[in-house]
């Protein structure tokens, strides 16, 4: 069983929901990332989503665009991100790490070469937001060959046929985007998400995580009632941005937020 499968199975047996924080690797500077990941795990993160900086983050709002720019100003790219995962794994061999980013850095590296480097570093899953299942056959095969899960998105615009298509190719979990828009916006409508998740569960047994628009304990708790995992990104990245010139304070500040979210989610179970 993969680390992602093990983690979701444990949570299920405890009747708990997963909390998945997202931060961009190398934001605001490279030496912050690994201590930050450990701090978030200690504060109650179940899985980690690590953003791979990209020059043209087309699906992201201003908060994560700025995070990419800060990381890129330190030349943090896919190779450096794998170095960070390798360093994280020296102390933590159980928390799943999912890379989230855009296709081009992987495309340029080469799917097979990247996959073996990522597996060796200790990556468990990868989500490339601009790679829909239609174009993902070779990519997913390369990841599967090294037991890295290919995570795919579904969205409010995804109809039955797309839910089927994604369910066929996805592994690990499915990431449901709660609204039409970019990261960091706030249009969360829990009842429409709920009905979509009910529909989706007809096609897949994989855990379903919900991201986009989760801003605080209250929205995290609402999502935890209907989904298997709560994914929180822009709120954390905004806090991090506000501390960009006091990087020492970043791990403890974000860990405090993760604890709050954890407490709110656990109240629902």
């Amino acid at each position: 069983m993969s680390r992602i499968e093990v983690r979701f199975a444990e949570l299920k047996s405890q009747n708990r929901k997963a909390l998945i924080p997202f931060v961009t690797a190398g934001d605001p500077q490279p030496d912050v990332t690994v201590p930050l990941l450990h701090a978030m795990v200690a504060a109650g993160a179940d899985l980690l989503e690590l953003g791979v900086p990209f020059s043209d983050p087309m699906a992201d709002g201003p908060v994560i665009q700025a995070a990419c720019e800060r990381a890129l100003s330190h030349h943090v790219s896919l190779h450096q991100v794998l170095d960070m995962v390798r360093e994280f794994r020296q102390q933590d061999t159980t928390t799943p790490v999912i890379l989230m980013g855009y296709l081009n850095p992987v495309e340029v590296w080469g799917y097979t070469e990247f996959a073996s480097a990522a597996a060796a570093a200790g990556v468990d899953g990868i989500l490339t937001v601009d790679l829909p299942p239609e174009e993902a056959t070779d990519f997913s095969a390369a990841m599967k060959a090294v037991d890295i899960d290919s995570i795919f998105l579904l969205a409010p615009t995804s109809d039955e046929s797309r839910m089927r298509k994604v369910s066929e190719i996805a592994s690990g979990f499915i990431y449901y985007v709660s609204f039409k828009g970019v990261t960091g916006a706030s249009h969360l409508d829990v009842s429409s998400v709920s009905s979509k998740l009910n529909e989706l569960r007809k096609y897949t047994d994989l855990p379903v995580g919900v991201g986009f628009g989760i801003r605080d304990g209250e929205s995290a708790a609402q999502v935890a009632r209907i989904a298997d995992a709560v994914i929180v990104g822009s709120v954390l990245v905004s806090q991090l941005a506000a501390l960009a010139d006091q990087p020492d304070r970043i791990p403890s500040t974000l860990a405090a937020t993760v604890s709050e979210l954890r407490a709110a989610i656990d109240k629902t179970s």
Binding site: M58, L103, D130, P132, A155, R162, V177
Partner: peptide, 8 residues
Amino acid sequence: FVSETLMA
């Protein structure tokens, strides 16, 4: 090559 929301 776009995010899922734009496929439909």
